[in-house]
Amino acid sequence: MKNIRYLEDVSTLVFNKDKCVGCSLCTVVCPHQVFEMNDGKAVIVDLDGCMECGACVNNCPVNAIEVNPGVG
């Protein structure tokens, strides 16, 4: 997927690192490897890869992730 990219700087993905408990489920469910684990917490490594599918938001146990696309 690295050779097909969509628009940059449009994703509404917001991640609150302070809330993260390091369960790593976001790195499992994301279809575009937007997250990686670093020092026991998730970090966003590819924001422009995000397609706002919401898989990470639904599965984060501490609601540390938000995504708000206007249309769907």
């Binding site: 969509y6 628009l7 994703s11 890869g49 706002e52 769907g72």
Partner: peptide
């Protein structure tokens, strides 16, 4: 499987 709704709206 890779276009974000926000991107599509902008486009």
């Amino acid at each position: 499987p890779f276009t974000s709704p926000s991107g599509v709206e902008k486009e």
